[in-house]
Amino acid sequence: MDKLIIQMFNKNRQEIFNRWMEEMESIREDHRLQNISDKAYKDTNVEFFNIIFAHLERNEYKANDELTDFAEKLFQLGWRLSYLTQGLQNFRRIILSVLFDTEKSSTKVFDMFDEIDRWIDPIINQLINESAKNWENTVSIQKVALQELSAPLIPVFENISVMPLIGTIDTERAKLIMENLLTGVIKHRSQVILIDITGVPVVDTMVAHHIIQASEAVRLVGAQCILVGIRPEIAQTIVNLGIDLGQFPTKSTLYKGMQSALEMTKRKITETE
């Protein structure tokens, strides 16, 4: 950027600072930052301003480590990307208006205008990329966590396992249910598996089909599934859909399912004296 522009901004630094701080105060609620203490908000703004200004002085055309570290710190604290982009946009608006006030030659103003845009746009882009990376990272971590939770097979007694299903079942999860059932049956030598659908909000034809297929496959490896936790409204919609669960052992509750599972493996629960 032209040395002269930088000099001029340096001369007006205090004014730019004051106007910028004022603007940032007025947009605070837009970025849901009203819960942060006044002091913390102000300190962060000052730090942000100093980083932007140093950036301008050093005449760098991409976000430096100082800025990306600052951004990362804020993302981790849950601040929004829009705070940063708007902060930069406000900064641009203010320095442009300072520029108009001091420089009277219109061709010069145009050139400077252009230079300022070319300085600030890559910085904004880089912050957006950083934030996107941050999000992608979070999403992929959560995806793994979700996958681990999505179809657990829990060996409860010898030869009896339970698979509690909670939440929506999509195709990916349906695949996992099948895989975990089959590997679990072999690993735990299960004879009976209770599939608990108490926590599944909607049982449509797709979900029913996957459960039927999974239990067929389990039968082929020599075990038996019992479907438990069918809520009354789910029972009615299954009947309305015309899905035949005739050959499929079902029980209303996990407790009743466990009783039959014990019976099927020639055991029962008794009270002690």
Binding site: V202, V203, T205, M206, P232
Partner: peptide
Amino acid sequence: GSVDQARITTAISELAR
């Protein structure tokens, strides 16, 4: 009621799928 809610939700699920 809850049964009709389940019917409506299931119908939407079928059509959307």
